[in-house]
Simulated scan of single mutants.
Amino acid sequence: MSKIIGAQVIIRDNFNSVLVIQRKVKKTEPKLWDIFSRTLKGKETTEKCANRTIKEDLKTIIFDLEPFREYIVNEETGDTVMVYMGYVKERIVCHDNIVANKWISKKNISEYEFTPMAKNILTDFFESNK
């Protein structure tokens, strides 16, 4: 039986561009682009987890939060994450562990090296928003 262990959030704009980020990594690790994510705390709902993610990473709140899809993280255990979509309407102030952020669209997704999970999610997002 699957168990939801976290939430990920796609921040989009009115033109279906998506905000992606790069977090600080150790010198030996590759600098990959990603979307916003957190693991659930205690009995927290995935929706509260998604809101907490944006509040902590961007120091703002997310608007029009809606579920996108659920993705399997671990085939063996059946662990999944719930992915949400939403908008930010205020100035973005990134947390200290975020070193870069960019708005990307479907046409320039191939220019960036993503984590495997983020690549799957963004490919699905852009395909579903033609």
Results as ranks from 00 to 15, higher is better:
residue 4 I to R: 01
residue 8 Q to M: 15
residue 10 I to L: 03
residue 11 I to F: 01
residue 12 R to F: 01
residue 16 N to W: 08
residue 17 S to I: 00
residue 19 L to R: 02
residue 19 L to E: 02
residue 20 V to W: 06
residue 21 I to Y: 06
residue 23 R to Y: 08
residue 23 R to E: 14
residue 23 R to S: 11
residue 23 R to G: 05
residue 27 K to P: 02
residue 28 T to P: 00
residue 31 K to S: 10
residue 32 L to E: 10
residue 33 W to P: 00
residue 36 F to S: 05
residue 39 T to I: 13
residue 41 K to N: 12
residue 42 G to C: 06
residue 42 G to I: 08
residue 42 G to H: 09
residue 44 E to Y: 01
residue 45 T to C: 00
residue 45 T to R: 05
residue 45 T to N: 02
residue 51 N to S: 07
residue 52 R to V: 08
residue 54 I to G: 01
residue 54 I to M: 00
residue 55 K to C: 07
residue 58 L to A: 09
residue 58 L to V: 03
residue 58 L to I: 03
residue 64 D to W: 03
residue 66 E to C: 07
residue 67 P to E: 08
residue 68 F to P: 00
residue 69 R to T: 09
residue 71 Y to H: 08
residue 73 V to I: 15
residue 75 E to M: 06
residue 76 E to W: 05
residue 77 T to H: 00
residue 78 G to W: 15
residue 81 V to T: 11
residue 83 V to G: 06
residue 83 V to F: 10
residue 84 Y to T: 03
residue 85 M to Y: 05
residue 85 M to R: 12
residue 89 K to L: 07
residue 91 R to C: 03
residue 99 V to F: 04
residue 99 V to D: 01
residue 100 A to I: 10
residue 100 A to Q: 07
residue 102 K to E: 13
residue 104 I to C: 03
residue 105 S to D: 07
residue 105 S to K: 05
residue 105 S to G: 11
residue 106 K to D: 11
residue 106 K to F: 12
residue 111 E to T: 06
residue 112 Y to I: 09
residue 112 Y to C: 15
residue 115 T to C: 04
residue 116 P to I: 11
residue 119 K to D: 04
residue 119 K to E: 10
residue 123 T to S: 09
residue 124 D to F: 13
residue 125 F to D: 00
residue 129 N to L: 10
residue 129 N to C: 14
